[in-house]
Design a protein around this nucleic acid. Sequence first.
DNA 1: CCTACCGATCGGTAGG
DNA 2: CCTACCGATCGGTAGG
Lengths: 192, 192
Amino acid sequence: MKTNNKEKIKKVALSLFGQKGYEETSLHDIASAVGIKKPSIYNHFAGKEDIFTAVLEDLLITETTAYGELKLRKDEPAENLKRLFDLFCSRLMNTEEALLWKRVTFFPPEPFKDLIEEKFFEFEETITGILHSIYEDAKDFSGMKHFTEPEFTAAFLCLVDGVFLEHHYYREDIFRQRMDASWKVFSFGLFK
Amino acid sequence: MKTNNKEKIKKVALSLFGQKGYEETSLHDIASAVGIKKPSIYNHFAGKEDIFTAVLEDLLITETTAYGELKLRKDEPAENLKRLFDLFCSRLMNTEEALLWKRVTFFPPEPFKDLIEEKFFEFEETITGILHSIYEDAKDFSGMKHFTEPEFTAAFLCLVDGVFLEHHYYREDIFRQRMDASWKVFSFGLFK
DNA sequence: CCTACCGATCGGTAGG
DNA sequence: CCTACCGATCGGTAGG
């Protein structure tokens, strides 16, 4: 049984950076959660910043893959948009990645400001790409009111950003009610 | 000319806590921005936590006052809702309080979790109260589609939460476009 | 309001 | 993978 402490460190760091933040998580915290002593971390990583970089890289791959696997159905824009919304909400509620992603996109630790901004726009392009396909279907679809693609995209991203933030504030049952109500008004606004 | 360093300390702390966060702001940072040495802070406050508590208290008073002064017009629900939305957006863009409020509601420093949660619900009640008056006007108003009050409230709060978050990500010109597009879809959803 | 100092904790290194 | 240690920085105190 190989222990593979390098993977363990990344896993623990993902969790602790998400819960407490980068600066508030010490290498001692990480090491003791893994079951080793602090200096042993340096066998696997060049330092604390190196751990963060590795964790963030894994996170982006995980997220991009998850959205890339979303199956869209031809000529079903309303259905497709709902699927994207549901995938977003479920990842938000069920993955450790979401917590760290929320933290670092909102309040990036100083040394990583540029890196995180870059990753943020990379991730947003993935979502924007999916929205583009859906819009292409929807613009000729009689069921949708007239919106430009930037309006369509902006309104959807604002909806998910609102949901994203509220997931942080409310208990799950209240959160679900709010999510449903917001979706209802949004889809009433978008579709005839 | 009285220097009034106690007020200076609060002002500087509001700004630094907002920009860098509570844990990442040192008493040395605060003191040197005020133009004094670190131990002199203890003439005005019992410690770092005491400064934070005082700043947060002032912040809540400022915000509650600002929303309390919002003038609503009888039987103009759509107009009133837009005013509330605009007040929210303008405070978001123009006050230092908004940055600190974003930070601490989203990722409260450990020692203040309970205090901040309490203040959060207190502030939300202020907004919910305003939305209640607007809904009372709107529910008999033929221009609004049928939504329950919880749906109405949830959808509005999700909209402003989305805007709140996006203000952080985008430059002002892009932010304004997104804000306008989101409001457009939202109001199409709410009103006939 | 200051200088001088405290114990604790941080990321990181030496050396095995 | 460990023990033992480093210089820097933290919040806070003594004493004037």
